[in-house]
Design a protein around this nucleic acid. Structure first.
Lengths: 164, 164
DNA sequence: GCTCTTTTGTAAGACCTCTTACAATCTGAA
DNA sequence: TTCAGATTGTAAGAGGTCTTACAAAAGAGC
């Protein structure tokens, strides 16, 4: 069993599980899950983004984000309007209520980070985040839903990239 | 957005997501998910364990393991019998088919570990696993479903631990 | 202008994960 | 012995996460 316990896959699952638990605990008053929080952040940073863009920015698939957005809309945290030129897209916009929740969630996020890094010294914290960040970016393409950064989301002349 | 990308919580989610993707890819032929694989390992290492014991060993809740076990039983990978002295318990036992699948999955697990650690040098790999392991064990109690090691599972005279 | 291809949102389905609640059962202590 | 409290498995319900499939719409190249 100890062999399983030292596998990176098992440890990443546990780490994630712990991170979610802590966030939910810190966020109990506001009632946001990590994905919901992520969507609010994306909507705040890039107002008017389409659902697919939000998904790519966060590394989820369209269907997941569709559900999450639907829930957030039902709770009055954001609105969708399928207007802006492209009749396929549904662009997402924060409501004042959503903005307020996001602001309050900032504290929860901060505390979550602190608690997650609390087993480490200052130096170790930096090393840990660096290594984990390296894993996430180097293996980004191995995920079934890679994160596509701002550059591939903002349509500043896509025109490149023909064949496939 | 970059601030989110450097949060340990976000990175742990991405790391986990990537780990699952890779495992599922490596395991496509066998058709096991990570939780299913975990249950098979637990059942193999500790034959006759109850479902709750399996859950504690892996850090899941009873309900989740109940579902996973049900699926594995339906596929013929293990069997349950509620015999052994305690009529509440349903002890879990690997079938030959389950044992064969588990053996085949060993390769997938090995490759998954390799790929997950591939962005790191040898030294970094050790550091990463050590830090992640420390996080998982030090914050184990902050999880809603802590891992309870063998010592608290095997009933070698529980009798300790009175008040609460 | 007209196709061939891609993209977008959604639905349906599979599995994961947790919570709360419940009946059956077990345990420890009076 | 008896009984209050704990544990076990399960059900129901809320979300999360992905896949496949589909219709609507947009884009590329002829």
């Amino acid at each position: 069993m100890d062999e399983l316990y030292s596998r990176p896959g098992f440890l990443l699952r546990r780490g994630h599980q712990i991170a979610v638990s802590i966030f939910m605990e810190e966020c109990a008053k506001i009632g946001l899950t990590p994905p919901q929080h992520g969507v609010l952040i994306a909507a705040s940073q890039h107002p008017g983004l389409s659902q697919s863009d939000v998904a790519r920015l966060l590394g989820f698939d369209r269907a997941t984000i569709g559900q999450v957005v639907q829930g957030l809309e039902a709770r009055g945290f954001l609105r969708r309007h399928s207007s802006n030129g492209n009749r396929r897209n549904k662009s997402v916009q924060l409501t004042p209520k959503g903005a307020a929740a996001l602001k309050r969630a900032g504290v929860a996020m901060e505390r979550t980070s602190e608690r997650l890094l609390s087993p480490f010294s200052r130096r170790e914290q930096a090393v840990f985040v660096e290594l984990l960040g390296r894993l996430a970016s180097r293996l980004n393409g191995d995920s079934r839903t890679p994160v596509a950064g701002r550059e591939s989301v903002t349509p500043v002349r896509p025109s490149r990239r023909r064949r496939r």
